[in-house]
Structures are given as structure tokens and as C-alpha cells.
């Protein structure tokens, strides 16, 4: 699978959506673009032609990165790419945070942080109790891990031995006001998940081989949910956005937009 080419297309669409909509949350969409690429093109058992059929479930719990999910779903064939241009537009189909069934493939409404892992755990439990084979993947932000509800879900998932549940943390080290380490430190992060009874794998969230290897080895441990702590770079792929807090809020102007496209194409 040529993840690199796919991710380039997805990144260009993410930047295009931010540019056209004059909307942001662009850096944290770019940080999880490689994760979504591997997930949707190499891991999930899904059929864009039958989006409600038997399938693995995927929840973008960090719903503010909706543009990344929309771009990925369009790339995967769930809906035409032209729809992406209606992102955050009057009368459009794609709101700034994920809204269930706004387009095929969006399973859950997210945007309030700390909801997705509980919903995913409920889905995973239903599968377990029904002897089903479907798996559930939940993509979290690191700032989201401030939420108490998330740790309620973490406790629940390990207690019920939901080894068909996978959390992926897009650990880009930034949140609303600055660095996670300055605002509400998560470290020692891996140990926290281990303490909650999860199998933990630390990966480079921009390394396709590492992501694929980890996600193909689910469950990492029998009778334990798995979490990938994916170390990422906020704004990955656009030099002036990388590790710059302001790109949680700003949208690119014409010149910045063209520069971003060029940089992404030459990645």
C-alpha cells in the first residue's frame, strides 16, 4: 500500500478545507493524517459501498480534527471528493466537528472530548458478548486525556478484557493554550495506561511501517485492550505550522496555502 501518496492527498485536502472554509484545527488534523491513512487503507475491515454492513468500527474521538477524517473517508471512496469543499460552508454537509452520518462513514458525533472511548467500549462489549469478530478503533487527542470520563472508560475496557478495542493517542504534545506538559502534564503517560490494564505500544505516528505493524498485531495481548501512543508532530508536513500553537486557530491565506501544497507534494 502506497501510504505516502495517499497521505499526501489527504494532507492537501485538509489544508484546502482549512483554506476554503477559513477555518482551523488544521495542525491537529495534519498530526493524525498518517494514522488515519494506515487505519483506513491498511487495517479497517470496511466497505465504502456498504457503510452500514458488518465492519470494524472507527471513532474519531478528537472530533475537532474532523477535516482529517472527511478527507480520509473521501479518499477511501465513501463519498465524492467534491463534498470536501462544502466543509463548514453554509448549507454544506460537513460540520467542523464530526456529526454522525453527515456523510457515510462517520459513526459517531464527537467534538466534546472524552466521549469516544466509552462509546467504543460499548460497541466492543456488544461484540464480545455476541461472539462477534468486529474490532473498534478510537482515535484520541492527547489533550483529551485530561478528561476524567476517558479514564472511566479505560478502567472499564480493561476490566471487561476488551481486546477487540484499540485506542490510538495522537500525541502531538499540544493543546488549547500550549504544550500539554505545561498545561496538564500527562507523563508518565505510557505507565498510566499500563496501570489501567492496557497493552501499550509506543510508535512514531508518522512511520507507516511502525503504525501498520502495531495495528496488524491486535490484540497486542490477549484479554487486554490495546493503546498505541503515537508520537506525532503537530502540523506535520507544513513547515510553518509544525509545532506552532497558532495553527490550532488560524487558517492559511492564499500564499500560505500554495506554500503548504508545495511542501506536502514534496514530502
Amino acid at each position: 500500500m502506497d501510504y505516502s501518496s495517499l497521505a499526501k492527498q489527504i494532507r492537501q485536502n485538509i489544508v484546502r478545507m482549512a483554506f476554503l472554509a477559513k477555518n482551523s484545527h488544521v495542525a491537529c488534523a495534519l498530526s493524525c493524517a498518517d494514522i488515519l491513512t494506515v487505519l483506513y487503507f491498511g487495517i479497517l475491515s470496511i466497505d465504502p459501498k456498504n457503510p452500514q454492513g458488518p465492519r470494524d468500527r472507527s471513532i474519531l474521538s478528537k472530533g475537532h480534527a474532523a477535516s482529517a477524517l472527511y478527507a480520509t473517508l473521501a479518499q477511501r471512496g465513501f463519498f465524492p471528493a467534491e463534498v470536501l469543499d462544502s466543509y463548514c460552508k453554509d448549507g454544506g454537509m460537513l460540520p467542523g466537528h464530526c456529526t454522525k452520518d453527515c456523510v457515510p462513514g462517520v459513526e459517531v458525533s464527537t467534538g466534546s472530548l472524552g466521549h469516544g472511548l466509552s462509546i467504543g467500549a460499548g460497541m466492543a462489549l456488544a461484540e464480545k458478548r455476541g461472539n462477534g469478530k468486529e474490532r473498534v478503533f478510537v482515535l484520541l487527542s492527547d489533550g483529551e486525556c485530561d478528561e476524567g470520563a476517558l479514564w472511566e472508560a479505560a478502567l472499564f475496557a480493561s476490566h471487561h478484557e476488551l481486546d477487540n478495542l484499540v485506542a490510538i493517542v495522537d500525541y502531538n504534545k499540544f493543546q488549547g493554550f500550549g504544550k500539554t506538559s505545561d498545561i496538564l502534564n500527562l507523563e508518565p503517560f505510557q505507565e498510566k495506561w499500563e496501570g489501567f490494564g492496557w497493552a501499550v505500544v509506543s510508535v512514531d505516528g508518522h512511520n507507516y511501517e511502525e503504525l501498520e505493524r502495531a495495528l496488524k498485531a491486535i490484540p497486542q495481548e490477549q484479554r487486554k485492550p490495546t493503546v498505541l501512543v503515537a508520537h506525532t508532530i503537530n502540523g506535520k508536513g507544513v513547515s510553518y505550522m509544525e509545532n506552532k500553537l497558532e495553527w490550532h486557530y488560524k487558517s492559511p491565506n492564499e500564499e500560505q496555502y500554495q506554500q503548504a501544497l508545495e511542501e506536502i507534494r514534496s514530502l
Binding site: 459517531v108 466521549h115 466509552s118 462509546i119 460499548g122 470520563a149 472511566e152 472508560a153 478502567l155
Partner: peptide
């Protein structure tokens, strides 16, 4: 029967997940 422990936010999220799986 499912006792989720003293964790009400998770309880409702789990309920939603189960309902999304035809329960």
C-alpha cells in the same frame, strides 16, 4: 446485566455504544 461501577459518564457512553450495536 452490566454494572459499570461508579462511573456515570462512561455508563452513558457505553450505553450508546451498545445501542449502536443493536442493543
Amino acid at each position: 446485566f452490566l454494572n459499570v461501577g461508579v462511573a456515570e459518564q462512561n455508563m452513558i457512553g457505553v450505553a450508546a455504544g451498545l445501542a449502536l450495536s443493536a442493543k
